[in-house]
């Protein structure tokens, strides 16, 4: 989008929208993401947040930890392990791990490093990315069943151990779609699962959140397009998506979510200091594929981290550019 906006293909929306109302009503992180060179170029219609940490209220009691360190220090009791992870997904195996790394990069090193990483200018061997992998490695070290279970468990079965008796783990990191799998695969009932936002790591990037969203821009400046854009950002328009379930509105005035998960995800979105798209989705296919595989190789043998990362640098060098 940034490229289109800079090339002038996307028309600025500052005189199309009622900017004051738009900024007041829209989650600030999303306003920022749709702004190029100080001009509003794209608006969000709907969004989803990732980096949610799921738990079974019967096992995990008390407040959501405020910091990552506090979370890591949480005792897994009554479960054996703190985390459950499932990376298997056929030919796409490894992708749940990329979400972990993305959350770590954004929370540890902030949006600038994150953007450079997505754009292919941040080396994988740089300390910022390496420390995200190492943080993930620590999580895997506390995962149910060890690396073999992490690698062979399907992402859909990943959270099943939250609901067993005794529970295999206390926490599971995944986007909101996972609740369907909790019910179907894990045999969980409504009320047996809840979530909190993955805590901040570096306080200077408080509220940083990853997710997905649909961005709308205007290529042709016609009266119809202007009317449509102005309508799309209103609470009335965005309610339509929300009522169908599974989507979050960019407009903070929309509050009548059909379920508690959506409602609380919307709060996270509204309060997000920084919002970034899923990095691996934005990378070139070759980079994305190598990223998935790197996750598997790293979990399989953490000692190989340096060679795995330098291999990713090699892929980065040829995957971008043209």
């Amino acid at each position: 989008m940034t490229e289109w906006a800079k090339a002038g293909a996307l028309k600025p929306l500052d005189d199309v929208l009622d900017v004051a109302t738009y900024k007041a009503d829209t989650a600030p992180a999303l306003v920022q993401l749709g702004t190029v060179d100080g001009k509003i170029s794209g608006v969000f219609i709907k969004a989803a947040v990732k980096g949610l940490i799921w738990y079974n209220p019967a096992n995990f009691k008390g407040e959501a930890p405020a910091t990552w360190d506090a979370l890591e220090a949480t005792s897994p009791a009554p479960a054996k392990n703190l985390w459950c992870i499932g990376l298997e997904s056929g030919a796409a195996s490894g992708w749940p791990g990329t979400d972990w790394i993305e959350d770590f990069v954004l929370r540890q090193s902030g949006p600038d490093v994150y953007d450079a990483w997505v754009a292919g200018t941040q080396k994988w061997t740089s300390p910022e990315i390496k420390s995200a992998f190492e943080a993930f490695g620590k999580v895997v070290g506390q995962a149910y069943g060890g690396s073999n279970a992490v690698l062979t468990t399907n992402f859909g079965d990943g959270g099943n151990q939250l609901f067993t008796n005794p529970p295999g783990c206390l926490l599971h990191h995944q986007a909101s779609f996972i609740t369907d799998f909790f019910k179907k695969q894990g045999g969980a009932k409504d009320g047996q699962f809840d979530f909190f936002r993955m805590p901040d790591i570096n306080p200077s990037f408080a509220g940083a959140t990853t997710g997905a969203g649909d961005l709308f821009g205007m290529f042709n400046d016609t009266p119809q397009a202007r009317a449509l854009m102005a309508y799309l950002v209103t609470a009335d328009a965005q309610k339509i998506w929300v009522e169908r379930g599974g989507a979050l509105s960019a407009n903070t005035k929309v509050t009548d979510y059909p379920d508690a998960v959506s409602k609380r995800s919307a709060d996270i979105l509204a309060n997000a200091g920084v919002f970034r798209f899923d990095a691996s989705d934005l990378m070139p296919t070759a980079m994305n594929d190598a990223f998935w595989k790197a996750i598997l190789d790293y979990v399989n043998d953490p000692n190989k981290l340096d060679s795995i990362l330098s291999n990713l640098d090699t892929v980065q060098a040829s995957a971008y550019g043209g």
């Binding site: 499932g86 997904s89 056929g90 030919a91 399907n154 179907k184």
Partner: peptide
């Protein structure tokens, strides 16, 4: 083959 990548353990 595509389903085996996307069904998510179903």
């Amino acid at each position: 083959a595509n389903l085996s990548n996307s069904l998510g353990g179903e």
